[in-house]
């Protein structure tokens, strides 16, 4: 009886905390969507409002009236984010697999090396990267923002940490006995087991690539190659005259695809394709 009551008490406590956190989480989105319907002067005078206004269409007009095409930006952003996500998820799992499943002489040094790469602060390293890209004339090339994802140290690290307890050598051994090749074992056995981990990292990778502003801003100078965040940043133009209403509309439009992708992938995190699935 008393346990049941304490259960009830705990439930209430959980819901109070969750509802509170939900409000905290949704508040910026609400403000953003509201501001997308407000005029620039309304926003300048009161940056935060909980009620919508009537300027949605005029903001949309400003957005579409610019020299760039949001659809092009959407496609570019999608190409970069999807491309780098797929590459980083697949190849990081592959690298982690090499670090977990096989015994080879350079395994430990290689892992330490990956960890070290992960720890290098980015600000100055980026200067070298920009320089390199400009020198070899690869600006305005989306692949410069996609291919580096093949080497994503932090995702490798996560996959390794996840794989250690999750992947049993016995399954691999038995697959080998069945005559499956190593590459095949990885694709058909390891990858499915890693689904929750891959989904998790795919979300993070997609979000950070989609929201990445500075690197594309420096490397993509051709209008045809602009990503959505670059277009939003162009709306901000200079501080002397910023169309805040359409900036927020642009931000809202940028965030919507992310929410969709997240909802799609979160199914794996929520349901959990834990090891139980293998036994079926």
């Amino acid at each position: 009886m008393s346990e049941k009551r304490s259960d009830q008490g705990m439930k209430i406590c959980i819901y109070v905390v969750c509802v509170f956190l939900t409000i905290l989480s949704l508040f910026p989105f609400w403000i953003m969507f509201m501001n997308a319907t407000r005029s620039t002067t309304e926003i300048q005078q009161h940056a935060i409002s909980f009620v919508p206004s009537t300027y949605l269409l005029s903001n949309l007009k400003i957005l579409l009236g610019k020299s760039f095409d949001p659809m092009v930006g959407f496609m570019n952003s999608l190409t970069i984010a999807a491309g780098s996500t797929v590459l980083s998820a697949y190849f990081s799992t592959l690298t982690a697999y090499a670090l977990v499943v096989y015994e080879w002489r350079l395994k430990k040094p290689f892992f330490s090396f990956i960890m070290a790469v992960m720890m290098i602060p980015a600000q100055v390293t980026m200067i070298g990267f920009y320089q390199m890209v400009y020198r070899i004339g690869m600006t305005n090339n989306l692949s410069m923002l996609i291919l580096p994802a093949i080497a994503s140290p932090s995702i490798v690290f996560f996959m390794r940490q996840y794989m250690y307890p999750a992947l049993s050598m016995e399954i691999i051994q038995s697959a080998r006995i069945d005559g499956a090749g190593e590459f095949r074992i990885f694709n058909t056995i390891a990858l499915p087991i890693m689904k929750p981990a891959i989904a998790t990292q795919a979300i993070f990778s997609f979000v950070s690539s989609w929201n990445n502003l500075f690197t594309p801003l420096v490397l993509l100078t051709d209008q045809e190659k602009y990503t959505l965040p670059i277009m939003v940043s162009l709306l901000r133009g200079d501080i002397y005259k910023t169309e805040y209403g359409s900036v927020y509309l642009g931000l809202s439009m940028t965030v919507l695809p992310l929410i969709v992708v997240y909802l799609l992938l979160s199914k794996y995190i929520i349901a959990g394709v834990a090891l139980g699935s293998v036994k079926g």
Binding site: Y130, Y134, L213, F214, V218, T221, L234, G237, D238, I239
Partner: peptide
Amino acid sequence: KTTIIATTDGAYQPALDQALAAGGAD
């Protein structure tokens, strides 16, 4: 051929500097 990069995010100067330093047709 126009390249517009907003100043608000601090990328105009780095990009312009790189482009000037790299030279060439672009």
